[in-house]
Computed example of a mutant assay.
Amino acid sequence: MPEVIFNGPDGRLEGRYHHGKSSNAPLALLLHPHPQHGGTMNNKVVFALYHAFVRRGFSTLRFNFRGVGRSQGKFDNGQGELSDAASALDWMQSFNPNAQACWVGGFSFGAWIAMQLLMRRPEIDGFVSVAPPANVFDFTFLAPCPSSGLIVHGTADDLVPEASVAKLAAKLAAQRSIRVGYRTIEGANHFFGAQLDELGSLVETYLAEACPLRPATSTAAQLAVAGIAE
């Protein structure tokens, strides 16, 4: 789980990166919850998502938005954070030119940013959105949603009512040419507490079906070019 530093639009950004073992490993970018409410890349839900993608063979990056941890800059109400996410995706793609697929995921505020990035980057093939704050932020920009994906929510979420997320999921699932799954975790609150393992297993099972891996060769040469130790 190497620490990485890469250039963002408002200074350097800090991340943690796992490089997939195959030369065409799919990419996954994971985004953390609200920076002004304690959200960081080390959030437990983000950590669970990160390891679910890693277990499925993805080259996976989680990073701190501007002003969080050692990332430079300051909070920008979502606009700057979206630019940070785009820069993070650029950084991953720069030394993964043969990636077989590209996914984005996020938790809470990070889910909102992830879905915006999905609309702006046509190369993104799928998404995992955990507890998207549909009662706080406007998701009407998903018209239409360009990619299939998964939405996960806890039935006991006291910050984002389950009904608001179910409505969003139903709206997206009704669109043609994509498939949007909606799964709930019984008894889970907004932070999933004791259900983190269940969340990770659910996401991993979904990925196994939605993004089966194609065999490829070792990535030792790519790692050397990227300057990242295996």
Rank of each mutant, 00 (worst) to 15 (best):
N24I: 00
R70S: 13
A111Y: 00
G57L: 02
L30Y: 00
F65V: 13
D158A: 09
T219I: 14
E14W: 11
R179D: 14
F141V: 07
S71C: 13
P212V: 13
G78V: 00
I124A: 04
A156S: 15
G126K: 13
V128D: 03
E204D: 08
I113Y: 06
S108V: 07
P97T: 00
S108Q: 05
S83W: 00
K74V: 11
A28L: 07
N7V: 07
S83C: 13
Y50K: 08
F137A: 08
N7T: 13
A163N: 11
S164W: 12
L159D: 05
L213H: 09
G106T: 14
L223Y: 02
T205H: 13
G110C: 07
L117M: 04
K44R: 11
L13C: 03
S148P: 14
F192V: 02
A25D: 07
Q79L: 10
V45C: 04
T219Q: 09
T60I: 02
A101K: 04
S87V: 00
E123V: 15
G80K: 00
E162T: 14
Q79C: 05
A111F: 05
R55T: 06
G105T: 04
L213R: 15
A226K: 06
T140N: 15
V54C: 14
P9M: 08
T40S: 14
Q222N: 13
V225G: 11
L49A: 04
N77I: 04
G193T: 05
G227F: 11
L61W: 15
P26I: 01
N77L: 10
A188Q: 01
H51K: 11
D138F: 07
C145E: 03
R183S: 06
G181H: 06
H51T: 09
H18N: 12
A163R: 13
P161F: 05
H19P: 12
N77W: 12
F192P: 12
P161T: 00
R62P: 04
K44D: 10
D76A: 15
G11S: 01
R121S: 08
T155V: 04
H32L: 04
G80M: 03
V180R: 13
Q36R: 13
H32Q: 02
S148C: 03
N42K: 08
N77Q: 14
H19L: 14
L82C: 02
L27A: 05
F53Q: 12
I124M: 06
L150K: 09
S129V: 06
L199S: 05
L196S: 10
T184L: 02
L49I: 09
V104R: 01
T155M: 06
H153G: 11
L168Q: 09
F191W: 12
M119Y: 08
G57R: 13
Q100L: 08
A221R: 11
P33K: 00
L118S: 01
T60G: 03
P2N: 12
R121P: 01
F141R: 07
F139T: 05
T184C: 08
I113T: 04
M41F: 03
P215W: 00
Y206R: 02
E204M: 09
S201H: 09
T140S: 15
M92N: 01
T40P: 12
A131F: 10
S83D: 09
P161N: 05
I185L: 14
A114Q: 00
N64S: 09
G126S: 15
L118H: 04
N64A: 04
G126I: 01
S177E: 15
F127A: 11
G67M: 10
N98R: 09
A173F: 04
A170H: 08
I124N: 01
A221P: 00
